[in-house]
């Protein structure tokens, strides 16, 4: 088991490193020098070739990519000193670089923004389960009936609408048109400041994410339940005269849940890596919005950091999923 985890973590690290190299390469071999956005920003749009050269030099972007990446990677572990133009910055480990746009150390921002994204992602993902599983079970129990079809297709309709539109309209109607109490005042407040405000402010974003994302859980649970309910042991249980609910929940759902939980692990990972749409629409200053703005501003260090963060989260969640899977389903042996 331990050896397996170590092996997986090593493989995961390779993936993470590759992704961060890929981001570097995208900027390095892109249509313009990665120093150009920095130069344009710092010179108020008067980036002459000489100034550009200066910035390339001070940022180290005139070095070969492997050399610069090496420094970057080293900085993550031991810290480094950064220079941007005439500015000198001490960047302690873990050093993810310096955002020229925000004038902050990337790691500090990452830590500052993480709670918002974790809050949004955690709540939204929880709603996937809380909404998706009961509805899926309900549909499976009435398989083929009108209820089944209405349930399945109505959620399908909701998730066919572009998500941004769904969230935007939900926000407009809850906040402005009907001014629904609680739901109407969305926004992020740190949990430590005020837990009640934290929960109420995030309720609408959670609901939007949950309603939209639960469709696949509904369908998945339904499929797995249909499958499970037709297994021999369920029929045996039924024949033994066990109550229908016991059969469904204790026997059917249990086996159906195994794959659902694993999908959930992956989804949670993806959400944690950055809920871009939700953060943008609900003006939540988390990792997703940060990454989006950094891409627009071509802030290489921040883009690299968000990609790195996303990859790390994905690797860990994949690993956790596999571990849980092995616990839930004894047939799977980790090797």
């Amino acid at each position: 088991m331990f050896a397996y985890i170590v092996k997986r973590l090593l493989a995961g690290m390779v993936v993470v490193v590759l992704i961060s190299i890929a981001v570097f390469a995208l900027f390095w071999y892109g249509p313009e020098s990665p120093a150009r956005p920095v130069c344009e920003s710092k010179t108020g749009g008067k980036c002459t070739p000489e100034r550009l050269a200066n910035f390339e030099k001070s940022l180290g972007y005139d070095n070969p990519i492997y050399e610069e990446y090496g420094k970057y990677a080293k900085g993550v572990f031991v810290g480094r000193e950064l220079t941007i133009g005439t500015q000198r910055i001490d960047c302690d480990a873990p050093c993810l670089g310096y955002s020229f746009k925000n004038n902050t150390l990337v790691w500090d921002d990452l830590v500052k923004r993480m709670p918002a994204t974790v809050s949004v992602a955690g709540g939204g993902a929880l709603l996937y389960l809380l909404l998706g599983i009961p509805i899926g079970v309900a549909a499976a129990r009435r398989r083929g009936s009108l209820t089944d079809k209405v349930l399945v297709s109505s959620f399908l309709v909701v998730s066919s609408v572009p998500y941004y539109l769904f969230a935007l309209l939900a926000w407009i109607y809850c906040t402005l048109v009907f001014e629904i109490p609680v739901l109407g005042s969305s926004g992020y407040t740190p949990f430590t400041d005020n837990p009640w405000k934290w929960a109420t402010g995030l309720l609408l974003p959670w609901l939007c994410l949950g309603l939209f994302g639960c469709t696949q859980y509904t369908r998945y649970t339904r499929g797995a339940m249909v499958e499970a309910l037709s297994e021999d042991y369920i029929r045996t249980a039924k024949a033994k005269g066990l109550p229908a609910s016991t059969v469904v929940y204790r026997h059917g759902l249990r086996s159906a849940l195994v794959p659902v939980v694993t999908v959930f692990g992956i989804d949670l990972g993806v959400l944690l890596a950055g809920t871009i749409f939700t953060e943008k629409i609900f003006e939540i200053q988390g990792i997703g919005l940060w990454g989006l703005n950094a891409v627009v501003a071509k802030d290489l260090q921040v883009v690299a950091a968000t990609a790195l963060f996303g990859a790390v989260v994905m690797v860990i969640s994949n690993l956790v999923v596999d571990l849980i899977y092995s616990v839930l389903d004894p047939r799977v042996r980790l090797s």
Binding site: L168, W171, I172, T175, L176, V177, E179, G184, S185, I281, E283, N293
Partner: peptide, 21 residues
């Protein structure tokens, strides 16, 4: 000050005369 806001959203806020607006 909220920068880079969505024009539609801001217009909707302003026209709604809700508590927020």
């Amino acid at each position: 000050f909220k920068f880079d806001a969505d024009q539609e959203k801001v217009d909707a806020i302003l026209l709604s005369d809700s508590a927020e607006s």
